[in-house]
């Protein structure tokens, strides 16, 4: 219940942060979010700044250059957009740190199972992809020519497709053997 309430609160905060345009209110919202994060605030703020840095820096620098060239630079826009982006990204970081998504989805079993399967498979596939990349790197002394680079990327992708086909079949069999797809009988209803 707590996780679901936090998700609803997050959605409301996101809508509020995009509906308010006064930088002072946005800054107040950011201070509140930092206070809500407590001891995690510095770590989450660092993660937030890293996540927003590239895109926000490009947009801000572009806006300053365009504004100087056109003679209509508005510092309030820069303050507003950067506080807004920081607030929204911090709220997402705070949500990720505070909410157990799998528990928040437990009112909808199919979505909960799907999320569990996806997260477990993402970890497996990422590890496999990293191993493929490291194996390829360890077997060459020079940078690959363009044609060979494409062949290597395609080979890795084909291997991942094979793995995906095998794994989905194995998971389906494992779920069937544990009665996941069986219709709920009288015993199941009693429980």
């Amino acid at each position: 219940m707590r996780d679901r309430l936090l998700l609803i609160g997050y959605a409301a905060a996101v809508i509020a942060a995009t509906s308010v345009h006064d930088p002072r209110w946005l800054a107040a919202g950011l201070v509140l979010a930092l206070l809500a994060a407590g001891r995690d605030a510095p770590r989450l703020l660092r993660r937030t700044l890293l996540a927003m840095l590239a895109f926000s820096a490009v947009v801000s620098v572009g806006y300053v250059v365009a504004g100087l060239l056109a003679g209509n630079l508005n510092p309030e826009y820069l303050i507003r957009i950067n506080i807004r982006v920081c607030l929204l990204t911090f709220l997402t970081s705070l949500l990720v740190a505070r909410v157990d998504f799998l528990r928040a989805l437990n009112f909808w079993p199919a979505a909960s199972y799907l999320a569990t399967l996806i997260l477990s498979q993402v970890v497996t596939f990422r590890r496999l992809f990293d191993e493929l990349r490291q194996a390829a790197d360890s077997r060459r002394l020079r940078r690959l020519p363009l044609r060979e680079g494409y062949a290597q990327s395609a080979g890795a992708a084909v291997h991942l497709f094979d793995k995906a086909e095998r794994t989905s079949g194995e998971i389906a069999l494992a779920m069937r053997s544990r009665g996941f797809f069986a219709p709920a009988g009288p015993d199941a209803r009693r429980h």
């Binding site: 996806i118 993402v122 497996t124 992809f129 995906a164 794994t167």
Partner: peptide, 18 residues
């Protein structure tokens, strides 16, 4: 469910292929 889950993981990792 398993097919979609594995496909999502595949899509996630395909976005890492260089």
């Amino acid at each position: 469910l398993p097919r979609l889950a594995v496909l999502c993981a595949l899509g996630f990792v395909l976005m890492s292929v260089m």
